[in-house]
Design a protein around this nucleic acid. Structure first.
Lengths: 156, 156
DNA sequence: GCCTCGATGCAACATTGTTGCAGGATCATC
DNA sequence: GATGATCCTGCAACAATGTTGCATCGAGGC
């Protein structure tokens, strides 16, 4: 899982798949100037070596009733490893928690949360924050506009 | 693009595609108890109506050299609409900015940024924050652990 | 009860993905 | 500088998957 340097072909393929992984391999081959077989083998290698972690559909949260997005900063009481790990596991397990980062700075965790109603969020805070003895405080930002979302990263 | 209520079949299909959109329609049909043709037509409708916004490969940032993730909170001087829009556009256009939210609370924008080196981040702050007259201040959290990432949302 | 509308399953068909094989480039070794 | 090993390529046959036409079924309105 170490080196496997990516050449410009790999990067070009990744750039395409990152935008639309339903692009036919034949089309990718035309774009990057390789045969479909070569494209196919490179994609398989990228998947097996973990460069490509998953192939997923991006859904519109609003259309699924989850119109509210929140960003939450959490501060913990103690940085003791076992307590941190417990909190970490609890946060990651919650389906409403879309993303969770352990960070430096004023807070310890930053979450991105999606809910259908503020009542649901209130319930979540009770279940996830107040019930967790190690959560000292949390600060909530309500998202008014999701200007840019996704997991796209530059490939060059 | 309005109603188009999602029944339990749609939701079951979305749950699968959100995990792995390379799952064959035949397999999806078995799982949700529909014919492949029905699955195929539903997926097409979900794509056309925008419930499915994109089909993308999820890449490992570390394997592409972007080992550093940062979360940045930005406060602006003025909430004047034209100034806000200019800042918003500038932030969204930066490829290093993976996600960008306009939020309530102590800060105005929250960004998720990926870079290869801290020097690159420093350059980004100059280009994006210091050069923008309307950015009053920003606070940076360095991500030590990406506990949970992605765009997965509950479908039920 | 009859009609329309929308969705379904089946089956033929089109497209796309996969694999075996032979050949070409690169690199270390001699 | 030749030699062989290794890796990657393209081509072509093949397998798997996606797509569409058609007949049928069920729900709701008249």
């Amino acid at each position: 899982m170490a080196d496997s340097t990516l050449d410009r072909f790999d990067r070009a393929i990744l750039a395409i798949l990152q935008e639309d992984n339903t692009t036919p391999q034949r089309r990718i081959g035309e774009l990057v100037h390789l045969s479909t077989a070569a494209v196919q083998r490179r994609i398989r290698r990228l998947e097996q070596t973990g460069v490509i972690q998953a192939n997923t559909a991006q859904l519109d949260p609003a259309r699924l009733g989850r119109a509210i997005t929140l960003i939450v900063e959490i501060s913990v009481e103690s940085e003791r490893l076992d307590l941190l790990d417990a909190t970490r596991a609890r946060l990651a397990a919650a389906p409403e928690v879309q993303q969770c980062y352990y960070v430096t700075g004023a807070s310890d965790f930053v979450l991105i949360v999606t809910v259908t109603t503020m009542a649901e969020y209130q319930a979540l805070t009770r279940r996830l924050f107040f019930a967790d003895g190690n959560v000292k405080s949390f600060r909530t930002h309500v998202v008014m506009d999701r200007i840019k979302t996704g997991t796209r990263i530059p490939v060059d």
